[in-house]
Design a binder for these strands. Structure first.
Length: 223
DNA sequence: CCCTGATTCGC
DNA sequence: GCGAATCAGG
């Protein structure tokens, strides 16, 4: 299995949601827990509470490991490999999509707090089996009063959302051109057909856990 | 033991 | 870039 854009999206979303690497791996299927962790790190996803991380700020007694065989490193002359393990994570005030959307533009140069717009709401797939009204998404909240710039004139803003148009977010909340898809929805779903394809993916990684395959959209109405 | 994430390093 | 092997804490 390779890391397609969509699988990466899922990874990001699930990681953000706080699922464990194992769960994510299981969810994605075809990858190991290690693969997920490895990828997550390569992507720069920040590690959430990890068991082995509370590094002392100062240690006195140096509890040396009796230098057990490296088991792997075939490095003959390589001295001790440094273990940084103190990446200094700036907490940074959490930016909420609620009311500050109008006031973010100013300083985004260096300290932008990594707001990742995961799929709308960070919801999970919805197996055709356990079909239910597709309401959970509930993307952003209320905000953006108007369309100040002409650039946004033809973009679908939050205020434009209704039952009939696709509310798949494009861009990231807070960004100037953040808007919604706006295309007519796939009847019975909050998104257009294309984005339904993104939102509800029927993959069945782990054997029996994933019920039936047929894609829901395009056909069956939910009521 | 089980779990977790972090890191290393051969590929 | 990828991920198994390994490490290390809970």
């Amino acid at each position: 299995m390779s890391w397609t854009d969509q699988r990466i999206d899922q990874l990001k979303a699930l990681w953000d949601k706080g699922l464990t690497a194992s769960q994510i791996a299981d969810e994605l299927g075809g990858v190991s827990r290690n693969a997920v962790i490895g990828k997550a790190h390569r992507l720069g996803l920040k590690s959430r509470p990890s068991p082995v991380k509370s590094n002392d700020a100062d240690k006195k007694a140096a509890p040396k490991k009796a230098a057990p065989a490296p088991a792997k490193a075939s490095v003959a002359a390589a001295p001790a490999r440094p273990r940084p393990s103190a990446p200094v994570a700036e907490p940074a005030a959490p930016v909420r999509a609620d009311d500050d959307a109008a006031e973010v533009p100013a300083t985004r140069a260096s300290a932008m707090p990594r707001i990742v717009s995961i799929g709308p709401g960070g919801f999970m797939r919805q197996g055709p089996g356990d079909q239910q009204a597709p309401i959970p998404p509930a993307p952003p909240r209320r905000l953006v009063p108007a369309k100040p710039s002409p650039e946004m004139a033809d973009k679908t803003s939050l205020l434009d959302l209704n039952e009939r148009i696709c509310r798949w977010p494009l861009g990231h909340p807070g960004e100037a051109d953040f808007h919604f898809c706006g295309v007519p929805v796939n009847p019975g779903f909050p998104y257009c057909v294309e984005h339904c394809g993104r939102a509800y993916q029927a993959q069945l990684p782990r054997g029996v856990r994933r019920p039936p395959p047929p894609m829901p959209f395009g056909g069956p109405r939910v009521r």
